[in-house]
Design a protein around this nucleic acid. Sequence first.
RNA 1: GCUCAAGUGGCGGAAUUGGUAGACGCGCUGGAUUCAAAAUCCAGUUCUUCGGAGUGCGGGUUCGAUUCCCGCCUUGAGUACCA
Length: 991
Amino acid sequence: MQYHFNDIEAKWQKYWAEHQTFKASNHSDKPKYYVLDMFPYPSGAGLHVGHPLGYIASDIYARYKRHKGFNVLHPQGYDSFGLPAEQYAIQTGQHPALTTEENIKTYRRQLDQIGFSFDWSREVRTSDPSYYKWTQWIFIQLFESWYNNKTNKAESVETLKSIFSSDGNASVNAACDNDIPTFSASEWSDFSSEKQQEILLKYRLTYLAETEVNWCAALGTVLANDEIINGVSERGGHPVVRKKMTQWSMRISAYAERLLNGIDYNREALEWTESLKEIQRNWIGKSVGAEVEFRIQNSEFRIPVFTTRPDTIFGVSFMTLAPEHELVAEITTQDQKNEVEAYIEATTKRSERDRMADVKTISGAFTGAYAEHPFTKEPIPIWIGDYVLAGYGTGAVMSVPCGDQRDYDFAKHFNIPIPNIFKDVDISEEAYGSKDNVVIANSDFLNGLDYKKATKKAIAELEILGQGKGKTNYRLRDAVFSRQRYWGEPFPVYYVNGMPQMIETQHLPITLPEVEKYLPTETGEPPLGNANVWAWDTKQCLVISNELIDHKTIFPLELNTMPGWAGSSQYFNRYMDSHNDQEIFSQEAVNYWKQVDLYIGGSEHATGHLLYARFWQKFMFDLGLVPVDEFAKKLINQGMILGTSAKFYELMPRFEHDSKVDYQIVIVSFEIVKKYLNNDNEINTEFKKKIIQIQFDHKISKKVGKLIGDGKIEFGFMDRHVDVSFVNSSDELDLDGFKKWRPEFENAKFLTEEDGVFKVSREVEKMSKSKYNVVNPDQIVKDYGADSLRLYEMFLGPLEQYKPWNTAGITGVHGFLKKFWKLYVGKNGLNVNDTKPTANNLKTLHKTIKKVEEDIENFSFNTSVSTFMIACNELTAQKCTSKEILEPLLILLSPYAPHIAEELWRQLGQSESISTAPFPKYDEKYLVESSKNYPISFNGKMKFTMELPLDLSSEEIEKAVMANEKTQEQLQGRTPKKVIIVPGKIVNIVG
RNA sequence: GCUCAAGUGGCGGAAUUGGUAGACGCGCUGGAUUCAAAAUCCAGUUCUUCGGAGUGCGGGUUCGAUUCCCGCCUUGAGUACCA
């Protein structure tokens, strides 16, 4: 019987689905284990071979844990709201609900054929109202909460109100906006309802505020900081500008310290890779220093600055404000007004990207105003400059040119004095920015102190003056939560007199309304503005027609939707009890599953999803909803599988005069490109002549040939992607296929070497449709089977590493599966019987058990594939037919190649699925050898090996080795200085 | 610039309480089988001037270093006027 993998795989996939083999129960005597994948965006392109890598790894671990006797939860779902899903819908001109549904079908089919052990009964979709009901619910919980810095947790806004009514806000220490005036209890009760709401909004964990946001006109929406890379949008690479807009924000900054503590002080709670922790650490960006308040001369205004170097306060020679700083207009003198306004005008025009691009250009303007040094009372000129960011610290800095290179450059540029406050340090060329080896000088009471002592002393003196205090600043900004898009969760919010009101939770979900035009707009009007039925009736508690809005009982609803990360910040808990329509999840379920034990996904989510999810989890922990404040105990980042792109080279003319000149298209083999391109990437003259000839030969382009000859046209090579399916393993291009694919090159001249072989160049890069290097798993499954695909993806290399895909190599693991099948099934049926296993059989089995178990525990899935191959080869060579060996071997293979394992398991007469069979235990006694080939080396160089019993003592080994005639031959009568013996390992004779 | 990770055959990679470097697979070479091909099986495959040399480069510790230490180089990732 042959190994018919397609039949076997279809058979068992059907069986597992019908028998709900992998359905997890919330009640079990077994210990629990929760294995989770980052759920996919169901994009239109479907899966490529890179996508399942993490899913295969988690599936191996989940199946292994079942064999080990755990009650395993291994769910899957779809992150179906958000920008990618909507962009695809826009591109294809269909409604996102339809494309999403179709894409999910494709994904499900592709996932099913790989044989994952998902519990699909718990599936969630973030775009499903029964799911986003709870996303809206959490939003309301955040709105009804504030962060109490005294208790260091989120508390109900009700407690805040009662504090205000009894004591006012002076005693409150909250994470909140910094523009809140102090008020007493009686003032609070005298405030109007609107005023009270306005103040409370500044304390809430999700709040509405006018802030500087990242506006992306091309996507028609605002973006959070983590959605911007190098000044352009992560999705599509569109330009992003700063803009003031009224938006919902999440007060994640309140949790900055706890998010950091989770990384650094509670290492056991968060078994994440150091590099990922590092990314989050940098993103949170804690810096410890002081806030110093500067008085403005002849004015009531005071400007606070944040500094990490209060020890250098006597080195201040000027102050710099961000151009957007709110006091700029107030303090600028009449004389300087024009200059300052012109400068502000010029800086706001520049996009974020331009600003980042020329960091080196120094620009600024003098406001004409002076601040007063807190200690010396000397006047300090106040400048504005765009090297100071409005969004960090207080948007103002005390400039110490001798200790900070940027201040130094600014001072040099504008001829501002650079006082030196460091003892014996030369600052004539550059600033001295180091905190080490400094002694402060010319600084009154700080003279002679080092950085640490001076910092402490400076803060103490500032506190006495009442002009400063120690302060910690975080780079982490509050996260903008509104998107001017259609395909997202609607906010459960309506507006009364401009103040946001929450819809009561029993009326959730507020479902996404139908709109005719769901396209985003460049001006930022949300598409929900087009909805006809989008008003809240407070009496009937219903969403009704906009025409009925009367601002008495019927009010307008929020038009923005939530960002992509809203739905992914709590889904891992929802899986625990995904059908519950009374609660987000029952306490019973969450106290059983607690948290994700193993989470697998890409590291690109380090500053987005993985940070926001930790934030929500901590918030839910404060509310007493979850028992653990970190949602994922162990996290593994699978590396990306890269594609091997192929490129061809087109000769591109660079016309100087007449751009409409017709010419012969020339496509050049990579061999020729290499040959005729000089070091400066220019085509050499020999090749140029060839091109002229080609153009002359072609009747329509004689003119071009002449122009090249006259030096009026230059040519260069342009590399372009070609679909990898037209290229063979020797990098040769199939020209007929290529011409059919790209008809515009039908009449092109293909220039090759004499052999006529057209070669392409290769490049390893991210798999993507636009690079034509995508490999589809469907074809692989069809040709080699899911088990081969699973084994090969693991065999490619370490899970966490980036690695290129190469389909050719799959024959190796596929060949192994065929051999493995042959070990069990011969031409005349089953090869397995009740023969007693030999010592060698047992040795092979037990060392395989040991290795595979260790590999899985260490996530070294690549090496255990090799282990299986070795075991298979050994047992084949041993002609092993013993059931006692071959049956447990199937359980070892089952997590990796579940279909073939299940099939052979049943053929051996088992009636139950292999998936719950207990993992075999290895016995050391079969692994112990009685003798070993000792390498005998002289001065560290291996000379020969010698077989010795393993139970010999060091002295006995030495005796035996010295008596050996080969040893004597090497020694040539000399006596060795020393003999080093490591029992069981090596003998080294030194002398 | 700063932070982190990594550099081993033609390729993917294996080996670390310091102990025979190159497991396993791809590719390649030769052979068997076949009318032929595919498939399958067997043998070989780090380089070499056959003395040796060899885990990015240069040092160090050690009887012994891919593994530990110091200094460089290269690549990748994160971040970027963060005061």
